[in-house]
């Protein structure tokens, strides 16, 4: 007679595989923990330095750790300036592109235009850096004269705006496309023109999704390194004047860590303090945008 036993049998291989898969899944948590721990550990060393105080760090405008100046604003000012220019360019342009693609373009036109934007999104940032330094800056100097320095935040910010444009346009387009057709029909049925419908009904309805795109764009701009490292300037400079050279947080990390750096020096630990700040800022921005996107999705589902 056949053995007919329906009781659970231990399946060793099956459990082993499941454990391995679980470990693969949980590795991402360890990555985050490792980032927080490693950056935090070195940053703590930096802040434990008797010379460094939080007040100095968050209020000073000079950054020269080796001679006792720890004012992060010297770097933050450049990060803010370049990011602002980038968003100033990419938000309106990206939004306009998104509206065109979502509300106007035919399927065929979209199938041509979307890959072009994807190419724009796929270009390595070091190439954008080359473009900023050797194309945009000379043009700016031709237009505005020599008052524009060879390294300047304006050129870096503008090119960063072009880099972020596809990100903002594709996220905004998703948000616009998620607005139900019935709302557009309602507007048309009241005798609205296409632009009136797009700008006054569809756009406001997609606003939170567009907000999420904006936040991700900011986070990308703040964390972008190569464009600013190449085109914006090499040296902390507390200024918000876009035609001047100044170094961003990311640019500073890249330049200092690229040189000869000895472990445990104040230069070394200070980089981790900056990186921790970067991480926390982008983390908060990303979390907010995810939350917004999820809420937005629920509303129309």
């Amino acid at each position: 007679m056949m053995n007919f036993d329906l009781r659970k049998k231990p399946r060793l291989a099956e459990s082993l595989i499941q454990t391995l898969l679980f470990l693969a899944g949980i590795l991402s948590i360890f990555t985050t923990l490792a980032i927080v721990y490693e950056l935090g550990k070195e940053a703590l060393l930096f802040f434990n330095n008797p010379d460094v105080t939080f007040v100095k760090f968050f209020s000073g405008t000079k950054w020269q750790p080796s001679i006792g100046n720890y004012g992060i604003w010297a770097l933050v000012s450049a990060t803010l300036t370049t990011s602002f220019i980038a968003i100033f360019i990419s938000l309106p342009l990206g939004l306009a592109v998104a509206i065109y693609l979502s509300e106007y373009a035919s399927l065929r036109v979209r199938s041509i235009l979307k890959p072009i934007l994807e190419v724009l999104a796929g270009i390595p940032t070091v190439v954008y850096g080359y473009f900023a330094l050797l194309f945009v800056t000379p043009i700016l100097q031709n237009i505005f004269g020599e008052s524009i320095q060879v390294y300047n935040m304006l050129s870096a910010g503008l090119v960063m705006g072009i880099m972020i444009l596809p990100l903002i346009s594709s996220m905004s387009e998703d948000a616009l496309s998620a607005v139900p057709r019935s709302l557009r029909e309602a507007a048309f049925a009241m005798g609205a023109t296409k632009v009136e419908t797009s700008l006054q009904v569809v756009l406001p309805a997609a606003l939170s999704g567009i907000g999420a795109a904006l936040i991700v764009g900011i986070s990308r701009a703040v964390g972008e390194t190569m464009i600013v490292a190449i085109a914006s300037g090499a040296g902390p400079n507390f200024t918000f004047n876009p035609i001047q050279a100044a170094e961003t947080m990311t640019g500073h990390i890249a330049r200092i860590s690229g040189g000869d750096l000895s472990y445990n020096s104040i230069d070394y630990t200070s980089l981790f303090a900056i990186a921790l700040m970067l991480f926390l800022v982008t983390l908060v921005l990303n979390l907010i945008s995810q939350w917004v996107v999820n809420r937005f999705r629920e509303r129309y589902e």
């Binding site: 139900p180 019935s182 709302l183 029909e185 309602a186 507007a187 049925a189 009904v201 406001p204 309805a205």
Partner: peptide
């Protein structure tokens, strides 16, 4: 329309 579709 079939389903109520007020503007947001």
């Amino acid at each position: 329309f079939q389903k109520p579709n007020p503007f947001p």
